[in-house]
């Protein structure tokens, strides 16, 4: 039954060429269900191109982009009926107030007249912009505008949300707030497809990742599966902080710990230690350092598992 179908985003042989340059090459990807999927890849990999095709901002050279089974290019209005999108960092019509801009989008999305104002205000509250509701957007900073853009994408309670670097232009607090919004959306049975360069952000909020480079899909799956599949049994770097400067003799002892391949001072009381053996190797190192009673007060992997996977994967293909 059609009503039982889950929200979905699907690319079928999606190709985009600009003259001789192929930005997207026969991309096949099907995402369905309520989840958050991170879309990762280096600059120019084809992430934004893909999202622009899904919102009819550009046309595919070949293939189809389907949202909830409907071809965006052929039936844009119907395909985007239940979709909220934020592509790049849009500018908002400067003489409109934040509330007016959102009510305009609410009207376009067909939110009933009685609910429009309430929904716009609620969306503004969600992005912490309620106090600026009646100010014209032309006076807003880039970060404030991006909050309004996030609010606009959430209007009408869409089931599919496409976000292209949604935290771009936001201050650290704004980034954290937007991440919290996305985490909350995950609990509301939504399909969120999110492109980002921030791997920590993706690790924190996404359930799955799709990795793309040179317009081709390299991997798609649950984060833990991708990490397992593509991360090498290589060396991890951990940043270790001590409560006091370390004597050379202590440094010598640390170098002798099983699995440690390199020890470097990164400050008076900080070391970068290269250790083999993945997570168990790191556990052993920490335990050994504590038993040495050399004043360990901080122990942090310099990169996340996803970051290492990403670096491995893109080092291999480029």
């Amino acid at each position: 039954m059609a009503d039982m179908a889950e929200p979905s985003v699907q690319a079928i042989d999606l190709t985009k060429r600009y003259g001789q340059f192929t930005a997207l090459s026969k991309l096949n990807l099907k995402i369905e269900g309520s989840k958050c999927v991170g879309f990762l890849g280096p600059n120019g990999a084809g992430k934004t191109t893909t999202l622009k095709i899904f919102t009819d901002m550009i046309r595919p050279s070949e293939g189809k982009a389907l949202i909830n089974g409907i071809d965006v290019h052929r039936q844009k209005k119907k395909a985007l009926e239940n979709c909220g999108a934020l592509i790049e960092t849009p500018e908002i019509y400067p003489s409109l107030t934040a509330k007016e801009a959102l009510i305009m989008i609410a009207e376009i999305k067909g939110i009933p007249r009685k609910k429009r104002e309430r929904e716009a205000e609620s969306a503004l509250s969600r992005v912490k912009m309620r106090a600026w509701a009646d100010k014209t957007v032309g006076k807003f900073s880039k970060g404030m505008k991006q909050r309004i853009n996030v609010a606009a994408a959430l209007l009408g309670d869409p089931e599919v949300i496409l976000l292209d670097e949604p935290t771009s232009g936001l201050d650290p607090r704004g980034m954290s707030e937007v991440r919290d919004i996305i985490k909350n959306l995950k609990r509301e049975n939504k399909l969120i497809f999110l492109s980002s360069h921030l791997l920590n952000e993706v690790s924190e909020i996404c359930d799955e990742v799709a990795m793309i480079n040179h317009g081709k899909l390299l991997a798609y799956g649950k984060i833990e599966d991708i990490v397992k599949k593509f991360s090498k049994e290589s060396t991890n770097i951990v940043e270790v902080s001590f409560s006091r400067p370390l004597a050379n003799s202590v440094l010598h002892k640390i170098r002798g710990i099983n699995g440690v391949s390199k020890v470097e001072r990164s400050g008076q009381t900080d070391l970068n230690i290269n250790v083999k053996g993945g997570i168990p190797g790191q556990e052993k190192l920490l335990s050994r350092l504590v038993s040495m009673k050399c004043g360990v007060i901080g122990f942090k992997p310099a990169s996340s598992a996803l970051e290492e996977t990403y670096l491995n994967l893109f080092k291999e293909v480029t």
Partner: peptide, 13 residues
């Protein structure tokens, strides 16, 4: 000015 990005990605021709 990129204002089109605010409008075009919505269900409107």
């Amino acid at each position: 000015n990129k204002t089109g990005y605010f409008l075009v990605g919505n269900p409107i021709r």
